[in-house]
């Protein structure tokens, strides 16, 4: 989860190995099912793409080739990794279209993307991504371009198919509602880094990073009585060419004056374990110079009441 320019799409493209060595330098480590992907042979990563990890994108109209039928594109995806006849692949494609809820898949398979509605196209994209039964599905803003009723259909579909295919899903979004609907675990990104991570419960009910607090205060809460005013974060997200020194969030942070010294502007906070340590929120971490106890106090006494 993060706003535009926070690096969430770039990270997922790196996982898929879709950055070219000419345009990007990748360091660190990406492990898929134990296999290291950073520095692996390009052809080895290519073999994993589509088969072990698949991806769906924000705008299904531009993400599908306009000149090939929906069926052809699914069949192609399936036959890259499976040595089967065209006929068998076609039958599989029809089955996939059926499973993602496209009516009359037998005739719709020969339609072109532009003949589908937005929701249908996203279903077809999902069918294509799942055609090789991947263990990891990355969905980059999968519902942002869709209307709310269609969005609900697609979110339901992703959840149902996740159960059915038993895949891990990485969902990339700026919409906290979508996150809460789907996610078990969340990483909040800001200026190219994860600044808080934890279970969905931890992030929504006991967040510890000032940026996460800001996000929660910025959005009108549909599930609570209307409030008088929203509580925006001041300022604007930083340019990634000139990221602020120290904690990238410091120019917008309301609480940096509570940190002793000038740590916020000089020292980048590490993502360290957070939470009460009772084990309630395993894996909860935040990158902030405020001491954990103080953060929890600020949330409980100052932030949480304002949001209710």
């Amino acid at each position: 989860m993060g706003e535009s320019g926070s690096g969430k799409s770039v990270s997922s493209m790196a996982v898929m190995g879709l950055h070219t060595s000419r345009s990007a330098r990748i360091s660190g480590s990406i492990r898929l099912d134990g296999q290291e992907l950073v520095g692996a042979k390009q052809d080895d990563v290519r073999r994993l793409r589509g088969q072990k990890m698949a991806m769906i994108f924000q705008d299904p109209l531009s993400a599908m080739h306009p000149f090939y039928t929906v069926g052809n594109q699914i069949i192609e995806a399936y036959r890259i990794h499976n040595q089967v006849s065209k006929k068998a692949a076609r039958a599989h494609a029809i089955d996939m279209l059926d499973r993602v809820g496209i009516p009359e898949p037998r005739s719709r398979i020969d339609a072109y993307p532009h003949q589908f509605s937005g929701g249908m196209r996203q279903r077809a994209m999902i069918a294509m991504a799942l055609s090789c039964d991947p263990s990891l599905l990355i969905a980059d803003e999968p519902t942002t371009a869709l209307d709310v009723t269609v969005q609900a259909q697609i979110l339901d579909l992703i959840r149902d198919l996740q159960q059915e295919f038993d895949s891990a899903v990485v969902i990339i979004t700026h919409d906290l509602g979508v996150v809460a609907e789907l996610a078990d675990d969340i990483v909040v990104m800001y200026a190219g880094r994860g600044i808080e991570q934890g279970s969905a419960e931890a992030i929504f009910n006991a967040p510890e990073h000032p940026y996460t607090w800001g996000l929660l205060g910025s959005m009108p809460r549909f599930d609570r009585p209307p409030t008088e005013r929203l509580l925006p974060i001041k300022g604007t997200p930083p340019s990634l060419i000139r990221v602020p020194s120290g904690c990238a969030f410091n120019p917008r942070c309301e609480f940096s004056d509570r940190v002793r010294g000038d740590a916020c502007t000089t020292e980048r906070p590490e993502l360290l374990p957070a939470g009460s340590g009772t084990g309630a929120h395993v894996g909860h971490g935040a990158a902030c110079h405020l001491p954990t106890a103080e953060r929890q106090q600020v949330w409980a006494q100052e932030i949480s009441p304002r949001l209710a």
Binding site: V148, A152, Q153, V179, A180, E181, F204, R221, F222
Partner: peptide
């Protein structure tokens, strides 16, 4: 239907929400 489709930023609501699923497209 539209109101019930709005994703709610509350993880506790996930399990016990009744959602009306509209069929098809506009």
């Amino acid at each position: 239907a539209m109101l019930s489709a709005v994703p709610v930023p509350d993880t506790g609501r996930r399990q016990n929400r009744e959602r009306i699923r509209l069929q098809g497209d506009v």
